[in-house]
């Protein structure tokens, strides 16, 4: 199988993964201005632009860490696409009627941007419903997410392993039912 040629700008992705000061500084120096101008031209403030820029870089970092993100286009184009999509979602959340972003601005989405955004949106949906569970359910689920063996978690919580597993599955069941009833589930379903 032919290898995909790495774009020179892959160094930005690697720099983010290494938490490299110089690379991060270069990303802000080279690209912050473009994003700031674009967000400000589309109903946002410089502060909004800073938030979107930061959250987009973190999303790229997560994608690179989990799925070995390989750039096939310049980093600037990729970052701009992620920022545009995030800003578009933010405007939808704020319910800013009358605000227009040209469709072209958000439809020029590459495959890697699409993967990244779908995961982000799926995570947000799950988080949204997770927060609606009761305290005990949230704690039980959160406690059992780590690598610690569940028998140890049960001992720490002072319950039996069988009880913990039963409670966890009940709580997870509640969560998946809430997700399934949501209008967004249809979109999410296509992605899992």
């Amino acid at each position: 199988m032919p290898e995909i040629a790495l774009h020179d700008d892959q160094r930005y992705i690697e720099g983010l993964l290494r938490n490299d000061d110089q690379v991060i500084d270069a990303i802000y120096r080279h690209f912050a201005g473009t994003i700031k101008r674009w967000v400000c031209a589309n109903s946002g403030s410089p502060d909004d632009a800073a938030d979107i820029f930061q959250e987009s870089l973190l999303a790229i970092y997560r994608q690179a860490r989990e799925k070995r993100l390989v750039l096939t286009c310049p980093f600037e184009s990729f970052l701009l696409m992620v920022c545009k999509r995030k800003w578009w979602n933010e405007l939808k959340k704020r319910n800013r009627k009358g605000v227009t972003i040209s469709i072209d601005s958000v439809s020029e989405i590459s495959e890697e941007t699409n993967d990244l955004m779908q995961q982000e949106e799926r995570d947000q949906l799950v988080s949204h419903f997770f927060q609606q569970l009761g305290d005990r359910c949230r704690e039980i689920i959160a406690q059992t997410l780590g690598s610690e063996h569940q028998e140890k978690v049960a001992a720490r919580l002072g319950v039996s392993y069988a009880y913990l597993r039963k409670k966890k599955s009940e709580c997870m069941g509640k969560l998946t039912q809430m997700i399934k009833k949501s209008p967004e589930f249809r979109i999410m379903k296509d992605q899992i």
Binding site: F130, M172, T176
Partner: peptide, 11 residues
């Protein structure tokens, strides 16, 4: 996939 999402967001 819900467990995966929770791992990413909570940890």
């Amino acid at each position: 996939s819900t467990v995966d999402s929770l791992r990413r967001t909570l940890q």
